[in-house]
């Protein structure tokens, strides 16, 4: 779905991404994994044009990402996006958050309702909470609303930036299971950013391990464990496996 060719990005004096090449396969879940500051969030923002690469190009379905404003908007309709904490609009109810784009695109009420119902069922969101404002929702519920909002237009791609980052462990565990089921049902191209190895292994078909703006290794968790490309891979895995209270079985 995506191919990145010699893409780099710099913020001021910080080189966020060094020139990298990467392919993200269609219909699979790719996890961008790495410690904070490794460039994984920068990378995901290049995929929907929130950021523009300094060098190289990002190909979407074989074509470079559009640069003109209008084409970029229509690309974003095909690429759902949710970030840590949900980024919900606090002045809109859960339902209004979810259906905002449908309203803007003047969908019929019936079509909007139908799609909303599908999403409520998919994300196992309590329907009666749709009328609540973000301030009245729990963290997990907010994340489910954010997911529904990202999926409203039935996009081809789903970008999730640390979607479970701010949740307590129990809610997080429950949502991880739900997300895996959702990904399996939708069979969309998913790019998920996390710093949590267990989460990456649990949700990802494919893991891209990053460090200081470079891709260290791309492959399955087993690949990373058994055929590390670099001593950092082993260190990163061991650090998380051995961390107290962080069960690898999750």
């Amino acid at each position: 779905m995506y191919a990145l060719q010699d893409v780099s990005k710099r913020f001021g004096t910080t080189q966020a991404l060094h020139s990298l090449n990467l392919t993200l396969p269609t219909g699979r879940t790719t996890v961008l994994l790495g410690p904070s500051g490794c460039g994984k969030s920068t990378l995901v923002r290049l995929l929907n044009g929130l950021l523009h690469a300094d060098t190289g190009q990002v190909l979407y379905a074989g074509k470079p990402l559009p640069t003109d404003a209008k084409a970029l908007l229509s690309l974003r309709h095909r690429v759902g996006y949710a970030l840590q904490g949900g980024g919900l609009f606090p002045h809109l109810t859960g339902e209004e958050n979810v259906t905002l784009m449908a309203q803007h695109l003047r969908w019929s009420a019936a079509r909007t309702r139908e799609r909303r119902d599908v999403l409520v069922e998919l994300t196992r969101f309590p329907a009666e909470a749709l009328a609540r404002y973000p301030a009245q929702l729990s963290g997990g519920q907010r994340q489910r609303v954010a997911l529904m909002r990202a999926l409203m237009l039935d996009p081809e791609v789903l970008l999730l930036d640390e979607p479970l980052g701010a949740l307590d462990p129990l809610v997080r565990h429950e949502l991880q299971a739900d997300l895996r089921a959702i990904f399996a049902r939708l069979r969309k191209t998913v790019v998920l950013v996390t710093h949590d190895l267990a989460e990456a292994g649990f949700l990802g078909d494919d893991i891209v391990l990053m460090r200081e703006g470079r891709v260290v290794q791309q492959g399955s968790l087993v690949d990373l464990e058994t055929r590390p490309a670099d001593p950092f891979v082993t260190r990163f895995i061991q650090a998380q496996r051995l961390a107290p209270g962080n069960g690898a079985s999750a």
Partner: peptide, 21 residues
């Protein structure tokens, strides 16, 4: 920032972002 970024990432045109968000 996350609210502004969300509005942009949804694909809302600038005028609609101003008016709705």
């Amino acid at each position: 920032l996350e609210v502004r970024e969300s509005a942009e990432a949804l694909g809302l045109p600038p005028l609609a972002r101003l008016w709705r968000i």
